[in-house]
């Protein structure tokens, strides 16, 4: 088991390196290959209407005039050891995990990201708990009584959940519960300041997000459970004389849930990289919103930073999933 974890961790580290290389290639190499000059690329890193001097400075700071491997070295070195940018009059130091520097706002990207991670994490975690619970419960009930009234009702609701766009349900909920019947707050309060307020302000966002996901999870659980309950080992469990509840929970659910762990980990990882629409709808200043900002401002360093962070979360989530999966299914634990 330990060797398995070590191996997966090692693989994750390699994967991170690959991800960084790919990200680098997308942001620095592809444009050049597509015919952009160093100047044009530098211009993109500044944002709208830069001056000649700015361009030259950025070009120099990012090393765009140097060979590709040197550029990559700078890129990696920046992430690991930090970087220093010489901006003519001032020199800016971008601390250790330097995910880039927004020349436009004169801000390092990382501190901005770290201030936003709690917001996105709060949103994702709360929603995840909601959708996992509701999705699995609904899925199991539907699976145990296929074609029953509840099954059809739940699956109908689930279908609606998937079909209705977030900005519709979210906006509608917000309108009703913060304006018409103002029982929920609108501005985000950090968990550390006031947990009750934190939950209160995030609740609508959680529900809107969870509605979407729990629909998917209910369907996943239902089909997984239906399939598992047809397995031979379920018949064996019944042949032992177990009561049906133990058969379902101990033998059925555990098998049905393992594939869901995988999907769940990936979804959570992706969400941590920014829930763009939800954050916009509920005006949460999270990672997703930051990415949107980067895109609207045409501020490449921001986008680069978010991309790297999102990739990091996905890789980590993946690692956690692998380990959980091995814990659940002994067959995965290969030496």
């Amino acid at each position: 088991m330990i060797s398995y974890i070590l191996r997966r961790t090692f693989a994750a580290v390699i994967l991170l390196l690959v991800v960084s290389a790919v990200t680098f290639a997308i942001f620095f190499l592809l444009p050049r290959l597509a015919g952009q000059t160093a100047d044009q690329l530098a211009q993109q890193y500044i944002g709208k209407s830069p001056s000649k001097a700015d361009i030259a400075a950025v070009k120099h700071n990012l090393g765009l005039d140097q060979p590709v491997y040197v550029q990559y070295w700078h890129f990696i070195k920046g992430i690991v050891a930090g970087a220093t940018y010489d901006l003519g009059p001032t020199t800016v130091h971008c601390d250790a995990p330097c995910f880039g520097y927004s020349f436009k706002n004169h801000q390092a990207v990382w501190p901005e990201l770290t201030s936003r991670i709690p917001v996105t994490a709060s949103l994702a975690a709360g929603a995840a708990v909601l959708w996992l619970l509701s999705g699995v419960v609904v899925g199991v009930i539907s699976a145990l009584k296929p074609r029953s009234f509840f099954d059809r009702l739940f699956m109908g609701v689930a279908l609606a959940g998937v079909s209705l766009p977030m900005f519709f349900t979210g906006k509608l909920a917000q309108l009703i519960f913060t304006v018409q019947i103002p029982i929920f707050g609108r501005t985000y309060v950090p968990l550390t300041e006031n947990p009750a307020q934190w939950a209160n302000t995030l609740f609508l966002a959680w529900c809107s997000l969870a509605l979407l996901y729990s629909a998917i999870y209910a369907r996943l659980t239902r089909s997984g459970m239906l399939e598992t309950m047809n397995e031979d080992f379920i018949r064996t469990a019944r042949a032992k004389g177990l009561v049906e509840r133990s058969v379902v929970v101990k033998h059925g659910l555990r098998s049905a849930l393992t594939p869901i762990i995988t999907v769940f980990g990936m979804d959570l990882g992706l969400l941590l990289g920014g829930a763009v629409i939800t954050e916009s709808v509920f005006s949460l200043h999270g990672i997703g919103e930051y990415a949107v900002q980067g895109i609207t401002d045409n501020d490449l360093p921001k986008i680069l930073g978010v991309t790297l962070l999102a990739a990091f979360f996905v890789v980590i989530a993946n690692l956690v999933v692998d380990v959980l999966y091995a814990a659940a299914d002994p067959r995965v634990r290969l030496s």
Partner: peptide
């Protein structure tokens, strides 16, 4: 190294459905 991550998710059920039980790595 990444070989497993995605298929794990994608094939989670697909493979089970194929007849003749998918092969195990064990």
């Amino acid at each position: 190294p990444g070989a497993k991550s995605t298929p794990g998710k994608a094939t989670g059920k697909a493979a089970k459905k194929t007849p003749g039980k998918p092969a195990t790595g064990t």
